[in-house]
Simulated assay, not measured.
Amino acid sequence: MRKRLHLPAIVAALVTAAGLLTAGSSTPAEAVPATIPLKISNNSGRGDAVYIYNLGTNLATGQQGWADAAGNFHAWPAGGTPPTPAPDASIAGPGNGGSITIQMPKFSGRVYFSYGQKLVFKLTTGGLVQPAVQNPSDPNRNILFSWSEYTLNNDGLWINSTQVDMFSVPYAVGVQPVGGTTKTTGHLKAGGYNGFFNSLRGQSGGWANLIQTAPNGSVLRALAPLYGVETGALPASAMDDYVNRVWSKYSSQTLTVTPFSNEPNTKYFGRVSGNTMNFTNSAGQVVTSFQKPDSASIFGCFKLLDAPNDLVRGPISRTLCAGYNRSTLLTNANQPDPNDSGFYLDNVTNQYSKKIHAQMADGKAYGFAFDDVGAHEALVHDGNPQTAFLTLDPFN
């Protein structure tokens, strides 16, 4: 099953687009230790047991596995066909009002957390099968859970609050640098949890169908629109009208993409010809081309908007994906659009991402895979981290 881990792409992009770093981030004063503490606080107001999982890739060896509470790495054993049960990697989480501290090793991966039940992980011959709750037969379908993505390496810690796949459990992340002030992101506004779901329920066009409930009727999550399209919950034509208008506009006008904030002279110029948008460089040479994207390509930032980790197509595609999801391509022929006051104003837009951003205390979110274009993502980074934080917030 396909799962989209987008944080490694962010870290790769940081190499070529230093402007994505949070202003004021410190640079390493000394080597990042082998592990750093992650303090997990439970302010959820719920009485459920909480289970924590720290899963990912060991950056020293390239092996996939899990870390225990002490930060020790355990490689996954071989899987099978059909998938075989994975070892129980769960860590007992804090009760309501409490906190625990675990150790984070140098990983690129996810910290999962679930309420009431342990998550079910299995192993195939290709590795770990992670939860895919857009599949009604997934064993985790009726479990309330979410995750944060992070990378800890010799250059520091990147940790995010993500809604790329679903909006489910309210939580925030943070990092305290050595000798510095804690940076946090991911907190909702007061009433933001219910505000998001109420707004999605009231949105016409099938968007309310993204909401999944438990057998008792309680809300579990809202799926990201890509999964809505893939499962038929959201019309496959959701973005077609906007794409058609973009195609018409840039048949006679030029779309200018400046993908790197720290390289203002690196520009690419897009014009539509038939079913293709060709991009040229400043010398007039065609450097890459895109076919007319469908809704799935836009919501997933893949397929017809594939973004390899290169210096040309990938950065252009990231910018286009952001422009389509935020519906800024018609209002600004120079992308990316830096002004978030103009995001999501078209009637045809990524309503899911729009509503998530509207409920965030700092306006930051990962509503789609490349929400980091222009640094609108819920990400904190520091080059000299002392402690990381994961806070399970109230649902009210």
Score class of each variant (00 low, 15 high):
Ile10Leu: 15
Gly19Ile: 04
Leu20Phe: 10
Ser26Phe: 01
Thr27Leu: 14
Pro33Lys: 13
Pro37Leu: 12
Tyr53Val: 06
Asn54Phe: 00
Gly56Gln: 09
Thr57Ala: 04
Thr57Glu: 13
Leu59Val: 08
Gly62Leu: 07
Gly65His: 04
Asp68Ser: 04
Gly71Ser: 03
Phe73Leu: 15
His74Gln: 10
Pro82Tyr: 10
Ala86Pro: 00
Ala86Asn: 05
Ile91Lys: 06
Ser99Val: 03
Ser99Ile: 02
Gly109Met: 12
Ser114Val: 04
Leu119Phe: 04
Leu123Trp: 09
Thr125Asn: 15
Gly127Leu: 09
Val129Leu: 15
Pro131Val: 08
Pro136Lys: 11
Trp147Phe: 14
Asp165Ala: 09
Ser168Pro: 00
Ala172Ile: 05
Pro177Ser: 14
Gly180Ile: 12
Thr181Cys: 02
Thr185Glu: 10
His187Tyr: 09
Phe196Val: 09
Ser199Ala: 15
Ser199Trp: 02
Gly202Cys: 08
Trp207Arg: 07
Leu223Ile: 06
Glu230Gln: 15
Ala233Cys: 00
Asp241Arg: 14
Tyr242Met: 05
Val243Gln: 07
Ser252His: 14
Thr258Asp: 01
Asn262Tyr: 14
Asn262Gly: 13
Lys267Arg: 15
Phe269Gln: 01
Val272Gln: 15
Thr276Tyr: 10
Gln285Lys: 09
Lys303Ile: 06
Pro308Gly: 12
Leu311Met: 10
Ile316Asn: 04
Leu320Asn: 05
Asn332Ser: 14
Asn334Phe: 05
Asn334Met: 03
Gly342Leu: 05
Leu345Arg: 15
His357Asp: 10
Gln359Leu: 03
Gly363Ala: 10
Ala369His: 01
His381Met: 07
Asp382Met: 07
Asp382Ile: 08
Pro394Ile: 08
